[in-house]
């Protein structure tokens, strides 16, 4: 049985390797735009990145979620529009899915 504070050297090396691998794209993106320098074309493109990527992150999970999550998605959007408060919106979202899962 291992202790809570054990640190296996091979695991430490793997974690460090993963850390470097996760750091490269993070630093790389900012480094890239800085080295290329500002241009109207790139700025116009980067403006469209957030909406496209927000949608890309949640769309596949939503499709897979089935009717309960589809209805909950509408409730979420409505709560976001009316209230604009994240915590309340999330509570509405969770309650809707839990309620619908209990019924459906």
């Amino acid at each position: 049985m291992r202790n809570w504070y054990d640190l296996d050297p091979t695991i430490a090396v793997a974690i460090l390797a993963m850390g470097v691998a996760a750091a490269l794209p993070r630093i790389g993106g900012l480094l890239l735009v800085r080295s290329i320098g500002p241009s109207p074309l790139m700025e116009a493109w980067l403006r469209h990145v957030p909406p496209a990527m927000f949608a890309a992150i949640c769309a596949p999970a939503l499709i897979k979620g089935g009717p309960a999550e589809w209805i909950a998605a509408l409730v979420t959007l409505l709560a976001a529009r009316l209230g604009g408060n994240l915590a309340i919106t999330l509570i509405c979202a969770i309650a809707t899915v839990a309620g619908l899962r209990a019924i459906l």
């Binding site: 957030p50 909406p51 927000f54 949608a55 992150i57 949640c58 999970a61 939503l62 979620g65 309960a68 999550e69 909950a72 998605a73 979420t76 959007l77 976001a80 529009r81 604009g84 994240l86 919106t89 999330l90 979202a93 969770i94 309650a95 809707t96 899915v97 839990a98 899962r101």
Partner: peptide, 18 residues
Amino acid sequence: YGLGFVGTAVFLFLLQGL
């Protein structure tokens, strides 16, 4: 308990605001 939906809901909220 619908907790798996939280991640999706966060981005729906942000999308609505954006």
